[in-house]
Design a protein around this nucleic acid. Structure first.
Length: 589
RNA sequence: GGAUCCAUAGCUCAGCUGGAUAGAGUGUCGCCCUCCGAAGGCGAAGGUCGCAGGUUCGAAUCCUGCUGGGUCCA
């Protein structure tokens, strides 16, 4: 397979792991090791401590027990086999049974050529094997502009989608429009007041209506299109029209906000569109066939004394059969659907569209919804399709250490657009990915624009800009700095420990991609980039004292290798930034 | 009351989904540099990984209970 072949060449760690497994198989063939051994737990990783060598394998420790042998004996037999490979220069047993490997520097140096030849595809993985994944994210109610909380979900979802794509998944980015519930009626009534206002009447923004100014243009547009024919008319005359008009306007605004962030959805699905199509009934019928729907009365919630609690018979989903804590109502006693019913139908639809994996990005306030959603997907796909729900915690927006408060009810809140206008889409995206999704995030709009070490965005961008600066200078000295040319540079001169350390960091990139993709954690990419940038800057600083470590050299042949190293770091940085959706800057100003 | 997430250096946080002596940044302390390969550099001190058990060759990581905090729930 072409793809797998390429992956093997790019990820040095899986290369060496394959070698380890081959050696173990040979030992089995010789009868040194028993035939039936589980090898899945055998890993090849960079050691925490660089003095331990280049790579370490735990094979001897993992296999000791099932093979009924001492770890040391296995390790020594394995070491003897491994050192027969030209890539391995040393293999020594250490600690409780680790096997520390040292690789021929040539192997490391070749990483540079690999990076330069692969370009932006360096690190592409095949963990997805072309399977289909649906990432549903943002899914903000179409009742107003997106605020900072949504922004984090948007960035996390988009970056996760890019990461999975990079790791070999077939990705669909999807937005679920919650336009079926009561909140869009509220929206329509709010817009009606703005419509009245457009006619010179004073709006009555009753408690519970959306007070934001952003609805004024919608009211005016309705006036321009329909004149005064809805003034003084009963709600039934205008509600449906106002509802769809307003949600369309809100969705247009949300799409603009997303575009400002650089987020492009593949599909917008509508909750409203599920009604009347039989989709909900179909999904529930499927569950009913599985004996997972029944009429019943829920236990009152434990603990706090239920004041207005009364036992009511409802239509319930037996979600406890799929891991939930209690069964959940899908239809209220008055015969109307609960919020849960269309969500079931929507996820059923996703299952039917053939996805092998579903991912939902929710705000942390929807955490209570996770178990029932997982139960529904588990039931409706007969356990075939996993649903992973990533909960995105709050963003604490600050300016110079002071909190920027937001309140949707008062109509004064910091929108996504505000933030993007203040700091730009690239900074917004990067900062949103500097923490794992389930940890709260501090976002200081002043700090993220500082040029300092503790501003991670700047730090990574600066590394990239430095590399480009040095490339320009090398070019001015007559060097061909095209990647294709640099890929042919002689690299044997790059043998200084600092240079090899930098290369090792780059060699780790494909591995980090796999780890991040498997864990569904795009923030790891940002973390890796900060480390790579730190290594680049550290190496740069060494050049202040040690002239032979500078990228710019008098000797063209030597400089060519150094520049190849610099450029390959730049390639990896831009590959990582591409996953985050951040544009690298060529020059600092 | 239940669900869920979190708890790691003074502070802000990483930590490879079980590996070796737990890492950065910042702050503190000490030294060096004034170099445009500028937007500092080197080093030191600083830890019962919330607490208590359990699982195993091995736990910050997995399981159970507890404590404290965020979020959610008719």
């Amino acid at each position: 397979m072409q793809g797998q072949q390429r992956t093997r060449e790019m990820n040095l760690f899986t290369d060496i792991r394959t070698l380890v497994l081959d050696c173990l198989a040979a030992l089995q063939a010789e009868g040194v090791l028993p035939a039936d051994l589980e090898m899945n737990n055998v890993t090849v990783e960079p050691p925490r401590d660089a003095t331990h060598g280049d790579m370490a394998t735990n094979a001897a420790m993992v296999l000791a027990k099932p093979a009924k042998m001492k770890p040391r004996d296995i390790a020594e037999a394995l070491a003897a086999r491994l050192t027969a490979d030209p890539r391995i220069t040393a293999a020594e047993v250490a600690g409780p049974g680790f096997l520390n490997l040292r690789l021929d520097p040539v192997v490391w140096q070749q990483v540079i050529a690999t990076v330069l030849r692969a370009g932006k595809d360096y690190g592409r993985a095949n963990v997805g094997q072309g399977r289909k994944v649906n990432v549903e994210f943002v899914s903000a109610n179409p009742t107003g502009p997106m605020h900072v909380g949504h922004t984090r979900g948007a960035v996390v979802g988009d970056a996760l989608a890019s990461l999975l794509d990079f790791a070999g998944w077939d990705v669909t980015r999807e937005y679920y429009i919650n336009d079926g519930g009561g909140q869009v009626d509220v929206l329509a009534r709010s817009v009606y007041e703005r419509y009245r206002e457009a006619h010179g009447l004073s709006p009555e923004i009753a408690d519970g209506l959306y007070p934001g100014d952003y609805l004024k243009p919608v009211g005016e547009a309705l006036k321009a299109e329909h004149g005064d024919k809805f003034l003084g008319k009963p709600e039934g005359d205008w509600l449906p029209l106002f509802r769809s008009y307003a949600t369309d306007a809100m969705m247009a605004m949300i799409r603009e906000d997303l575009a400002a962030l650089g987020v492009e959805m593949d599909i917008y699905s509508s909750e409203k569109a599920l009604y009347g199509t039989g989709k909900i009934e179909e999904a529930l019928a499927t569950l009913r066939d599985m004996d997972l729907i029944y009429e019943g009365v829920l236990e009152p919630p434990k603990g706090r004394k239920p004041e207005d609690w009364e036992p009511r018979e409802q239509t319930l989903f037996r979600s406890t059969a799929h891991g939930d804590d209690v069964d959940r109502p899908v239809m209220k006693s008055d015969g109307s659907w609960t919020y849960f019913a269309p969500d079931i139908a929507y996820h059923y639809d996703k299952v039917q569209r053939g996805f092998d994996l579903l991912i939902d990005i929710f705000g942390a306030d929807h955490g209570g919804y996770v178990k029932r959603m997982k139960a529904a997907v588990s039931a409706l796909s007969s356990g075939r399709v996993p649903l992973d729900v990533k909960l995105v915690q709050l963003v604490k927006l600050q300016r110079g250490g002071e909190p920027l408060k937001m309140s949707k009810r008062a109509g004064t809140f910091v929108t996504l657009k505000d933030v993007v206008e203040m700091v730009g889409p690239d900074v917004t995206r990067f900062v949103m990915l500097t923490r794992k999704n389930d940890a709260p995030l501090d976002f200081d709009v002043d700090k993220v624009l500082e040029q300092s070490r503790d501003n991670p965005v700047w730090y990574v961008q600066y590394a990239y800009a430095r590399i480009n600066s040095v490339l320009r200078k090398a070019e001015a000295q007559g060097l061909d700095t095209a990647d294709a040319s640099l890929a042919g540079a002689a690299l044997s001169d790059l043998s200084h420990p600092a240079e090899l350390a930098l290369i090792r960091k780059m060699a780790d990139w494909p591995r980090q991609v796999e780890i991040a993709a498997r864990a569904h954690e795009p923030h790891r990419v940002a973390g890796y980039l900060m480390e790579l940038a730190a290594d680049l800057h550290g190496h740069w600083n060494l050049g202040n004292d040690a002239v032979e470590l500078r990228f710019l050299q008098d000797d063209q042949a030597i400089m060519r290798g150094k520049i190849a190293l610099a450029r390959s770091v730049g390639v990896v940085i831009s590959a990582g930034l591409a996953i985050l959706g951040v544009t690298p800057v060529e020059e600092m100003r």
